[in-house]
Amino acid sequence: MSPGAVAAALARRGVTVAALSDHNSGGNLAAWAEAAATAGVKPLYGLEVRTAEEADVLTVFDELGAALDFGQWVYDALPDVPCDERVFGVQVQVDAQENVLGFEPRLLISGIDHELEVVCQTARERGALVIGAHVDRTVDSILSQLGWLPEGLAIDAVEVTRFADEEALCAEHPSLAGVPVVRFSDAHLMADIGYQQTEFWVAEPTVTELRLALRGEGGRSARPVRRALAGLREPEET
């Protein structure tokens, strides 16, 4: 999944705005900026941060620089555990032309040494849209690790997987009341790009506008869509 290949697939599938969001790393975001521009996709800049509780949080920035600075803050708190490539594969950094720039030696799926609240607050202060990732999953999510959404958490929405029914989930978890639900493909494979999405009705694709849309303010709106883009295979329950 190189940034160039991702951007080309998005353009082919009619997605106009997307964020590249590696785990705990902004290492491929510079390449993403260039590749998305080439493909005609509006880039947003993401990191999927695994907190100390091993609850994944999606952070999305407007600006490459802000995302890279936040990426450094995350990396500075990443345990110095080497990546065993036999188990986890290679953690490759590339440029927009898919030239390999290097390999990240530190294991990126570790939980960093900052708690959920600190991660969300810091990301938001630095301008990010903050989203609880795949909260219906039984691992690596705020709900699996912490039981419910802590009160007062600085998040804009929660994301659910394709297998979640948001009405049932919200009925099961009263702490989700009033929290917007979004659906993203969370693609780890090329075939999964666009297997579900969220449509935003906004003036421009910026964090400020997306936040307004999630709140349903100013005539903006957001609508999660639980289906794959035309032509994509339907995912199987895992």
Binding site: E53, E115, L116, Q145, L146, G147, W148, P150
Partner: peptide
């Protein structure tokens, strides 16, 4: 080893 404040709540 979980030390989030939700530990006390639960």
């Amino acid at each position: 080893i979980q030390t989030h404040r939700n530990v006390a709540a639960v």
